[in-house]
Design a protein around this nucleic acid. Sequence first.
DNA 1: CAAGTCTATGCGCCAATGGCGTCTACGTAC
DNA 2: GTACGTAGACGCCATTGGCGCATAGACTTG
Lengths: 96, 96
Amino acid sequence: MGRFADDLIASMKQAAAHARGRKVRGLRVSVVEAPDVRAIRRKLRMSQHRFAAAFRIPLPTLKNWEQGRRQPDAPAAAYLLAIKRRPKEIMEAVKG
Amino acid sequence: MGRFADDLIASMKQAAAHARGRKVRGLRVSVVEAPDVRAIRRKLRMSQHRFAAAFRIPLPTLKNWEQGRRQPDAPAAAYLLAIKRRPKEIMEAVKG
DNA sequence: CAAGTCTATGCGCCAATGGCGTCTACGTAC
DNA sequence: GTACGTAGACGCCATTGGCGCATAGACTTG
């Protein structure tokens, strides 16, 4: 299987997990839809490593999100939304 | 005591908590210094309620941070850093 | 003065996440 | 072949996220 197939599978797992339980933290429901981290990253053409470094997200955490093993909590979801919409500005803002 | 004295006390509590244990999550140390949330918010002249809403941070979470009861995790710290440096852009980015 | 509103502190509670390490697997290049 | 970089999978623990409720000032209004 190629990369795309793997991605599809991963996405489906995420979708399944997403549809299954919408609880995010403390039994509640998230207000902001957690953006698709991988899609955002791929769009920026960055490896997990670089993406994590650029936005100061611990690599294991990013992996957890992309693999659907963990769900970004509310502040993280907001952060990702901001990254999605203004990647360059955010990258600049958190640099150095 | 006035508002400023209260703020000072709160800040000192935070400072104490900060100096005491530098662990952030999973026994490790944070790379990004967690910005002073209250300072950022005050600078924007927003109430906790509005600040939380504007940046999609759950109000209780914001309170925990400001009271020094909890420490923003790495992604949250990065988010706060971004907010500190480009408040308006971020606010715009996560709006709607 | 009292009543109501807004703002913020303090704290208990639970499940979920953050964060790390390790192992495995795939591709490409040397 | 071997080395390297990227990424998926999973175990583990302490800490946080997230909520609710009670309390306490400050400011306005009746």
